[in-house]
């Protein structure tokens, strides 16, 4: 069974690990065709928020609603509508790009997993390297395969955790174009990043996090760096790139 939804509502979500509070009373809402940025420095709670949205972690307080559904009872059905690109790439280095994509297409019950893998390779611009092991790829090429792996089941909600890490300018530009295409196709994209330069002009909504707390939220945000500086008091360079 697949659950479809038109919006994502995060309501007063908190998450603790033992005595440490990783998220504290976070609330926001995102509709179809929106790119939401989770912005903040390392340790702000962005990855924890992504894990909660991906149904990998249960919130210790508050709720996440996907349309009218909550994760608990609808976990597996919801996961078929969620695609995740983590900070780690979720690929088997010993397998070829085609084998990786076909494997994950099978895990998401694709009718023809080999056709799905071929289409994903085309989309990634790696059709000619499809039979090479992922271990032989550059970071940028792996990132492209990983993105197509996350999108292979055409998810409604796309979660990306620091997707620009290790990308050169051309690969970053290609990723930005892909994210805009996903938005135009009606997906909800949630993007956790501390790369404000690339996020500038891309986001429909921005949620600023610091120490697990939501310090600011903005619609159609502009001047992300200045906003961040005023909220957190530190500048962002482009770390990790």
């Amino acid at each position: 069974m697949t659950v479809d939804f038109d919006d994502l509502t995060v309501e007063d979500v908190s998450r603790t690990f033992g005595r440490r509070r990783a998220l504290s009373h976070i609330s926001f809402r995102a509709a179809r065709g929106a790119i939401v940025g989770l912005l903040g420095p390392n340790g702000a709670g962005k990855s924890t928020m992504i894990a909660v949205l991906a149904t990998l972690l249960r919130p210790t307080g508050g709720s996440v609603r996907y349309g009218a559904h909550e994760a608990g009872p609808h976990g597996p059905a919801l996961r078929s509508a969620i695609g995740v690109l983590g900070h780690d790439l979720f690929l088997y280095p010993e397998l070829t790009a085609r084998e990786n994509l076909a494997f994950f297409a099978g895990m998401y019950s694709a009718l023809d997993r080999h056709a799905a893998a071929d289409a994903a390779l085309q989309q990634a611009g790696l059709a000619d390297r499809g039979d090479d092991p992922v271990a032989s790829f550059s970071r940028g090429m792996r990132q492209r395969v990983a993105l197509e792996r996350a999108l292979i089941h055409k998810p409604r909600l796309v979660l990306l955790d620091e997707p620009f890490t290790g990308l050169d300018d051309a690969s970053a530009a290609a990723l930005l174009a892909r994210l805009r295409a996903l938005r135009d196709a009606g997906a909800i994209v949630v993007l956790a990043t501390h790369d404000l330069e690339l996020a500038e002009g891309l986001l429909d909504q921005a949620v600023f996090l610091r120490d697990g707390r939501m310090v600011h939220a903005a619609t159609r945000p502009e001047g992300l760096r200045a906003t961040y500086r005023s909220l957190v008091g530190a500048d962002f360079s482009r770390p990790g790139r």
């Binding site: 697949t2 990998l56 996961r79 078929s80 979720f90």
Partner: peptide, 14 residues
């Protein structure tokens, strides 16, 4: 190593 267990758990499969 590549967090692929997470990827398996993210799939809607049983």
């Amino acid at each position: 190593q590549s967090e692929t267990l997470r990827a398996l758990l993210l799939a809607p499969s049983p």
